[in-house]
């Protein structure tokens, strides 16, 4: 039931912005002040968190090796899974961040009656993750058209490809569908997979609902409440926001304010939540370090001054036994007095 509160919270946010934006004079709050505050919180929070991480040193080099180390020249080195140079590490990180390599690894072997052993992968989580993240990325890129005038070519290309199916009018963006699908699948997984449900926290559901709210309002705006929405005003506002000359030309529909408010909440929430995995994935010491610890010495800035129990102390304690058993010693036994 941990999803009840986050769901209520998102509904409350929707109501706040809906009712709030209806109050005359509040457009400026929801259209300008809140977005600025959210962006400021996001940027400051994000930087703070990254600096906070960076302030702690990395005392030890602890990559997780997932393949053959670099060793003898005739043994095939797995450069991507046990990288030993910086460029190999970059390649490994690329696969991790862009293709979600580790989730892809989720293979399983099945033994069927027979007995016959087959391998197949259990890649659902990978698929849902990819679906969600890439849809989100494309949607963010597409929205850049609102802030930039003229709209840069690459963004037009993204937009063109995203709507290549040419379904309906206005044409359907594929990512709108895949984002919602990805969200539903990720949410469904948290509900249905009992293990995952057991370990999920309220703050795992909240971003899912929030992003769902954002997607839903966006889709409503584009496809269903289009007539209420004044795109020209929105574009003016957006360009105004980035050029620090915000103007609200005419009355823009509430649905827009709800959408904008939820996005603001997401931005402000981002740095204080698990969503920071966006930054953290780059800094994970088990992935972003080379498996070269025997080749190059890694320095620990706080390496404590700890000495071993000394050989001299050891020999002092056991000298007699050592001499009697022909083990070489540094200092001979004192000659006996009698």
């Amino acid at each position: 039931m941990k999803y009840i509160f986050p769901m209520a919270a998102v509904i409350a946010l929707v109501l706040i912005s809906w009712i709030g934006s209806k109050i005359p004079g509040m457009e400026y709050l929801f259209g300008v002040l809140v977005p600025y505050a959210a962006i400021a919180t996001f940027i400051i929070g994000f930087c703070y968190r990254v600096v906070h991480w960076a302030k702690s040193p990395v005392p030890f080099k602890i990559p997780t090796t997932c393949g053959q180390q670099y060793s003898l020249p005739w043994i095939k080195h797995d450069k991507l899974e046990a990288p030993h140079t910086t460029s190999q590490v970059v390649a490994r990180m690329f696969l991790e961040i862009v293709l979600f390599r580790s989730l892809w690894r989720n293979t399983k072997a099945e033994i069927h009656d027979g007995p016959k052993l087959t391998y197949e992968s259990s890649k659902w989580l990978w698929l849902f993750g990819i679906l969600f993240h890439y849809s989100f990325l494309v949607i963010v890129l597409r929205h850049m058209r609102l802030f930039l005038d003229p709209v840069p070519g690459p963004i037009l290309v993204v937009e063109y490809i995203d709507s290549i199916l040419q379904i309906g009018a206005p044409t359907l963006y594929m990512t709108d569908v895949t984002l919602v699908l990805g969200l539903l699948l990720l949410f469904g997984r948290r509900l249905i997979n009992r293990q995952v449900r057991y370990l999920s926290l309220a703050n795992d559901y909240f971003p899912l609902f929030l992003i769902f709210g954002i997607a839903a309002t966006g889709i409503l705006m584009r496809f269903f409440l289009r007539t209420d929405v004044d795109i020209v005003s929105i574009k003016r506002l957006a360009v105004g926001l980035v050029t620090f000359q915000p103007v609200i030309l005419s009355e823009i529909s509430s649905i827009f304010y709800i959408h904008l408010f939820l996005v603001s909440v997401l931005l402000a929430y981002f740095p204080y939540s698990k969503l920071m995995h966006l930054g953290g994935v780059f800094l994970s010491p088990t992935r972003n370090m080379a498996n070269d610890t025997r080749i190059r010495r890694h320095i620990n800035p706080w390496n404590p001054d700890i000495k071993p129990h000394s050989y001299a102390g050891y020999e002092d304690e056991f000298r007699e036994f050592m001499v009697n058993n022909d083990i070489p010693v540094e200092k001979e036994l004192p000659s006996k007095a009698d």
């Binding site: 968190r49 580790s102 989730l103 997979n193 293990q195 698990k274 920071m276 995995h277």
Partner: peptide, 8 residues
């Protein structure tokens, strides 16, 4: 900070 509790 980073765990998203994906359950992998």
């Amino acid at each position: 900070d980073c765990c998203v509790r994906c359950g992998a």
